[in-house]
């Protein structure tokens, strides 16, 4: 089974394509002489499904990279980004940015704490000044600045 695991990617694409084809049909295809809103999406979704189907058969397993410990690290990094977005909406830029930088500097750059902490704090403040003050981007109210 596991040697066929790589076929998952084309399979997902195939399902995606077929779903889009069905959805496009519901949008009304119209006629070729008077195309409806669904016609073009239907055509490209068919192309997607067709190529995905071909790939399901012919794709080269060597293209697929193995999952390693590094992959788990990327997963953590992604979760931290999601947390950043949620916190950013709630408490503004400074705190989440500092935390995210700190996390990434420790996790990916393996910086020692004595470098990671100042880098993260300075980085967050500089970006805040750049975007909020310099470019006038209205970040959500910041818990630190008491906005």
């Amino acid at each position: 089974m596991s040697k066929h695991l790589y076929r998952l990617a084309p399979l997902v694409l195939l399902l995606f394509g077929v779903t889009a084809m069905l959805q496009a049909r519901d949008l009304s295809l119209g006629e070729l002489s008077a195309p409806g809103p669904g016609l073009w999406p239907f055509i490209v979704a068919s192309l997607l499904s067709l190529t995905a189907l071909v790939l399901l058969v012919i794709d080269d397993p060597a293209d697929y990279e193995p999952w390693t410990r590094g992959t788990a690290g990327i997963g953590l990094g992604l979760v931290s980004l999601a947390v950043f977005i949620v916190l950013f909406e709630q408490i503004g830029f400074l705190v989440p940015a500092t935390l995210m930088l700190l996390f990434w500097l420790r996790l990916f750059a393996r910086e020692p704490w004595k470098w990671a902490v100042p880098l993260a704090v300075i980085g967050a403040v500089v970006f805040h000044l750049l975007f909020a003050e310099g470019l006038g981007v209205p970040f959500p109210d910041d818990i630190v600045l008491g906005g």
């Binding site: 830029f93 990434w104 990916f108 880098l119």
Partner: peptide, 22 residues
């Protein structure tokens, strides 16, 4: 790693600045 941390933060702040939309 250092480069990545800062680049990702710029990306997030930058894309927010386009439409001010989370």
């Amino acid at each position: 790693g250092i480069l990545a941390a800062f680049a990702v933060l710029i990306t997030m702040a930058g894309v927010f600045s386009v439409n001010n939309d989370v």
